[in-house]
């Protein structure tokens, strides 16, 4: 990794953090509607895996998807525009927080029904095998809560029976909504569930982005070489409240120490400084760049127009198909691109 790569990674993590913090504020102001699931605290997972996946690797995740959207290469402006339901959003304002995608970046959503995307991920891997895309791995994320639903078990079983190249990533943030893992799952280590399908698996720490990168690289290489699925349980935390990423905001030494030990951005910050990869001033400057990127994204999103009324009828079907409005057939047709 070059120095600039390290700083890019650091900037990306701060962008994700800041974007979520700004999203929370905009939500409070009523500018973002519906549900808003923040990724704060889990940045090392998407940044780590996102930075080592290859362009042919498909990314598919659940509803906590803003971080993955950015790590997959979607411009934060476009992510923010989608959060505000604007026409410049990645789903043109029709998806919202939980339904971000950019097929050109091989980022396949953004799926809001817990666990439902797991069999879909298996199907995408089948598509690659079928078409001879031998180097492609489908990387599918889900929370610990999703491992208790039937979709998970059907999907994992199918991936093993058909020996599909899927990296199953459980982002274990210890809670499925408000219910802790030990109150919802019969086994305390999610990775144990892969054992039931004869699937290789391991549990790793997910707070250190460098560690996540190394582990993900190793496992992706293994899948590419040996084929078949692999389950990675990544221990992480989501925390709103203890959400400030900015070292400047910490006044007390103890707070800084806590940040550098428990926050993925703090941990990486300390690593870059202690390893002599970047100076405090350089990190500070990178941090400021990230903040600027997010502020620009907010400006862009706020100035982006709402979709036209006509858009209501776009993309119901891919083929020209008559559309109806309030029971009456309209002259126009629904058609995708």
């Amino acid at each position: 990794m070059e120095k600039s790569d390290y700083l890019d990674l650091y900037r990306e993590m701060v962008v994700i953090r800041r974007l979520e913090e700004r999203a929370a504020e905009l939500y409070q102001k009523g500018k973002i509607g519906g549900f808003l699931h923040l990724y704060i605290g889990q940045e090392a997972v998407c940044a780590g895996i996102g930075s080592v996946r290859q362009p042919q690797d498909r990314i598919i995740t659940a509803y906590r998807d803003h971080g993955w959207a950015i790590s997959s290469g979607i411009d934060p402006k476009v992510v923010m525009a989608e959060l505000l339901g604007k026409v410049d959003g990645c789903s043109k304002g029709k998806g919202g927080s939980m339904h971000m995608a950019d097929v050109d970046k091989n980022f396949w959503g953004g799926h809001a029904i817990v666990g439902a995307h797991i069999p879909i991920a298996a199907g995408m891997a089948l598509g690659d095998v079928y078409q001879g895309n031998d180097d492609a791995v489908t990387i599918c994320m889900f929370g610990d809560g999703a491992t208790n639903i039937g979709f998970f078990h059907e999907g994992l079983n199918l991936s093993k029976v058909w020996d599909l190249p899927v990296l199953w990533v459980c982002e274990n943030n210890q809670y499925g909504m408000g219910t802790s893992v030990d109150r919802a799952s019969a086994v305390s280590e999610i990775r144990q569930k892969a054992e039931g399908y004869g699937m290789p698996n391991e549990r790793i720490e997910g707070m250190n982005v460098i560690q996540v990168r190394e582990d993900a690289t190793r496992v992706l290489d293994r899948i590419r070489k040996e084929g078949g699925p692999y389950l990675l349980e990544v221990l992480t935390y989501r925390y709103r409240g203890h959400s400030m990423g900015d070292p400047e905001r910490y006044r007390e030494k103890e707070e800084v120490k806590h940040w550098e030990e428990s926050d993925p951005i703090g941990i990486f910050h300390k690593y870059l400084r202690d390893e002599g990869i970047a100076t405090e001033a350089e990190l500070e400057a990178t941090f400021k760049e990230a903040e600027k990127i997010v502020e620009d994204a907010v400006d862009f999103a706020e100035n982006s127009p709402d979709p036209e009324d006509e858009a209501l009828f776009d993309h119901i079907y891919a083929e020209p198909t008559p559309v109806e409005y309030k029971g009456y057939r309209l002259e126009r047709e629904s058609e995708g691109r």
Binding site: A122, M124, G127, F151, L158
Partner: peptide, 28 residues
């Protein structure tokens, strides 16, 4: 067997899997 695929008795996997394959350009 590549094109005529017996599945487990798991309907979510059958339809979910078909959706995934369709997204990659196949016609399941």
């Amino acid at each position: 067997e590549k094109r005529v695929r017996d599945t487990p008795i798991a309907e979510a996997a059958i339809i979910g899997g078909a959706i995934g394959a369709a997204l990659t350009g196949l016609r399941p």
